[in-house]
Amino acid sequence: MITFGDYIQPKSVDEAYESLISKKSARLIGGGCFLRMGNRRIGLAIDLSQAGLDYIKDAGEEIEIGAMTSLRSFETSELLKEHFGYMIGDSVKHIIGVQLRNIATIGATVYSKYGFSDPITALLALDADICLYQGGRMALGDFLKEVGHRRDVLEKIIIKKSNKRGSFQTLRNSQVDYAILSVAVVDDEKGIRISIGARPGRAALAIKAMEYINSKGLCEEIASKAGEIAAEELHYGSNNRGSGAYRKELSKILVKRALLEVSK
């Protein structure tokens, strides 16, 4: 059970940030879904629901997704679908159910850097940036590499528009279970990006596989080889859902499938 000492609903990010640094025991409340699984007391709960962070905006060259956007809005956004196809929707539709996705937020998901997160895997392949109130704009990939959590307010996620074609591949046993592995591949003007999540560690890019595939043309044989490279270059660990050895095997398959799908 989570209990609050004080509770505020700041009306702006400025206000939220000021409160966050005002007290050591202050915590931001995003959707509140995963938070509730914990068992502790939060001295000052800062509810971001009124801070104006629930939006998906067309900002010219980019699309901005406010941190308090629900996973369901993220999933069903016509704007996102128009630019990035089905991979956005595919990367959230296995998360429990519509009712949870109406509450859980994309900002809290990204901020928490959950290893099992499907949308992080997709956003990483999409070369998304994040915008922190204090820390400013940075690549999602760099943010994910940071150890620990910044004391900052994640304002929005930014995806550059381009002629992206993407594929999101995942394997889970029960369809609303956590992924055993997830793979996202995006192909655009800058080349192909491959991101692999739920290893079970945080999503990471398969850089060598990307270099390989970007130096060759895309065909079934090359896709298979890229899968093998991705399987070798990243670490695959074991947890309750699967062993590292199995994940490694899966990564070959899912990378190949994602590559072949974007090549269509």
Partner: peptide
Amino acid sequence: LITNTMMQYKIPCRMD
């Protein structure tokens, strides 16, 4: 026990 929630212990869902 590891499977002590319905997130860890998966009964079949509708899509299964």
